[in-house]
Design a protein around this nucleic acid. Sequence first.
DNA 1: CCCTAATTTCTATTTTTATCGAAATGTCAT
DNA 2: ATGACATTTCGATAAAAATAGAAATTAGGG
Lengths: 113, 113
Amino acid sequence: MKSENAVEALGALAQDHRLALFRLLVQAGERGMPAGAIADALGVPNSSLSFHLAQLRNAGLILQERQHRSLIYRANYPAMNALVDYLMENCCAGADCGPATACETPTQERKSA
Amino acid sequence: MKSENAVEALGALAQDHRLALFRLLVQAGERGMPAGAIADALGVPNSSLSFHLAQLRNAGLILQERQHRSLIYRANYPAMNALVDYLMENCCAGADCGPATACETPTQERKSA
DNA sequence: CCCTAATTTCTATTTTTATCGAAATGTCAT
DNA sequence: ATGACATTTCGATAAAAATAGAAATTAGGG
């Protein structure tokens, strides 16, 4: 992961509404949520929510998919993992300090886990 | 961890110089680094560095300690872990997706690990 | 004590970000 | 095609953050 991407991702998360939004999607899992339901859950006007969704999407932290009339958003777990790994890279000057996190979901299911 | 703290911490990390600075300290380990050495490593003017150090410190991500004439800064690993845990809390709608990260160092060494 | 070194605070300027109403877009149902 | 719904884009305003020089602070060495 490049520094620029990490800064962008962190910046996307560094805001009340967006942090709440991202965590909502993280907790919602692979199924995701439509924009309208998110707006209701957060109590943010549509236009504002749309702005924040775009920020998170630009940062690569969430994914968008159309389903009928709604746009469904879901967390990009690999991106989240990459960000956390970047933050903790080469942690602790070589001291043994536990494995890096990973959040694997059925759809992703690579070799590991 | 409260939402406010998380936003503050993420905001502190969402900036080129500060992200580089934090990662530098994360990698430096418990020994930490004096402000001057950090300024050299990052090529940032003292006054700017001081500003950024204060941001990270306010966010609780780094710790300060005086040693002779220098101020030594080091990463606050528990704070980093708490932030990551907050981000990933109740991840994946109950799907099994690996344990939360932890970065433990000799000085911290609590019950776990 | 005084001098030097390390770092921070002050101040002013520029750049970036958040907010939300109103209008535009795109999608489906009839 | 027409109407209704879900969501985004536009535009203007208000608020927050980054930058760096110069002055002030703090601690140690002689």
